[in-house]
Design a protein around this nucleic acid. Structure first.
Lengths: 191, 191, 191, 191
DNA sequence: GATGAATGAGATTTCATTCAT
DNA sequence: TATGAATGAAATCTCATTCAT
């Protein structure tokens, strides 16, 4: 793929993100996206075989940024510390790139058959499952179903994003702190 | 409204629920819904002034069933006991009427401007907020932001429904028990 | 036709007149008309074989009232006096039954193939043609094409109605006086 | 707007004019218009955002042609001469472009809320009002209500068009001459 | 006589996709 | 590589008309 080709794709993806965040998935037609990018509708279908492929590209793009951002902040450490850092990194990404996350969730909720999305969330769940298992083995976490707990923690993270979607002025850090405390209470071995 | 009229509306609402649960909100056209009901498109627009009105009827129908079901099971009690019963009642409704709940959430995620839905979730959050405040005042719950905690508890409930959507064979009772324990740990005053 | 049958037809026709005057021909659906009459749509098609027949009934009804009203006021007299009285009678009907005339013209302009309407206007033109011919023979009117003049006089009358449609507060009598003078100047033999 | 784009719009407008003149406004659906143009419905909505926009384009197109045609023939002159020339120019346009005028009037009578039309007729009335006022001030016209007279003259012009609509073989020039004489008699100061 | 219910044709509109240039 | 143009399917909605009760 040429440099120009890649640049065009990036531009289109960026405009798609803006459009979806602003209008919602259902209203984000190729015409609307093209308009925001100041390019014709045809360009989009030239660079992407179908609208679905564009949406997939959007999901991949945002998710990889998200994953990179988080990975850069979560160093190997003790399970709880890593989990805490992970949640804070999620909140930090939300503060810095709210639009991107809103779009990611908008697509996730609307496009049921998009290949990667379910997988993306699963990656988060798997990673946290592993952390929780480690913590249990090290005796710092109480006994619980790690799958359910991991899914629940991701759900709490997702709810933070959803609340931010509804209220742009949400105090994300406060919310995150509350969730961290909540999770800490929920998983630590009772003294 | 005549008996027959009401029966037709109920039938159409029921078919809409089936269709949305099966195809997703975006694919649930009036034609699809009518096809499942073995009636022509026109019948739907005869009984409902617009598609939006039908969707609102669906939301109202499911939510009122849901609320009635839960209300019948949650008696006045101590805060924690009520919260526990509430979560279990939610799980019980999910086991009995999975399709209805999936549809409710499908609509909620897709139809941004449907009047009642946001309100519906808010009702749950408000109710739980009140329970949590009571528990804190009685000294059985630790100190936390009741708004964030209530929203989080509803998110955990929603996640149970979402997981059931993805996996029809999910062990709902086990999942619910885990959540109940999770919440209990998260909110009780540490000993 | 039974008395009740006739009464029902009259009621429906009256409601159709109201509806067309208020909403315009294109928006005057059977449902709208029925709603104003507090009857079901079915009643209309029970009493009228088709919508077209209803519209024809409306035209006939209004036109016959109009004609009767005018006939009662225009007595045999000299041509100019009759013509003057005729125009004033038209204005008087407009003042008394503006809604009916607006509906008559609304239908006339929109329903091209309604049998009687063209005929109705033709009746007016014919009558005036006769008056003008008489006046010419009596030497009180100058020489002109009586067909064109008659059509033009009816057009001036129609324009009065059209202006009244646009402006409910139009001074109909003043307008009528101006037209009468206009026509008088136009047709009288120059001294 | 590209040349091809403009050509297509012109073609569609032309077909719309034909269709409306032939079938009447109410029957002139996008499908019918497209059929006459040998293009699919979609092409029309590609070039015009809505049917209303197309109708506006039709009105604008015809009216601007009409106005240009008339303006080219009416030079600054004495009031009566200008008025006479104006009426003749109207008749000449009718002879040359009957279909266009029929369409203009068909739309005017049916589409109550189309922006420009009312304005168009008003322009004619205003212009003639000015001429009449001038003539009165110069003492060549008798005393009359210039608003009513201007509206009436336009009504006579419109009636000529309406009669031509009903009878394609109407002798337009004769009709026009009769109207000119009629108006002359009606407005000139009696000797 | 009356009516609610149902129907199906047809209208406008949106939109992803295809294609010629 | 890019784009305007075209297409056709599908969506919602309106409405005159038919029909069973």
């Amino acid at each position: 793929m040429s440099f120009i080709e890649q640049a065009r794709r990036n531009q289109i993806v960026a405009c798609a993100i803006e459009t979806i965040a602003e209008l919602g998935y259902a209203q984000a037609s190729l015409a609307q996206i093209g308009q925001r990018a100041n390019i014709s509708k045809g360009v989009i279908t030239y660079h992407f075989a179908s609208k679905e492929e564009l949406m997939q590209a959007v999901v991949d793009d945002v998710f990889s940024r998200f994953a990179t951002f988080v990975a850069a902040r979560v160093m190997d450490d003790k399970p709880w510390e890593m989990l805490q850092t992970l949640l804070q990194a999620n909140a930090d990404f939300l503060k810095a790139h709210r639009t991107q996350l809103l779009t990611l969730f908008e697509i996730a909720h609307n496009a049921h058959d998009l290949a990667l999305h379910g997988h993306n969330r699963e990656l988060d769940v798997e990673r946290i499952t592993k952390l929780l298992t480690d913590g249990q083995q090290q005796g710092v976490f109480r006994n619980f179903d790690v799958q359910v707990m991991a899914s629940s923690i991701v759900a709490l993270r997702d709810n933070l994003i959803a609340q931010s979607a509804k209220n742009a002025n949400l105090d994300v850090d406060h919310y995150c702190q509350e969730i961290i405390t909540l999770v800490n209470q929920a998983i630590r071995r009772s003294s």
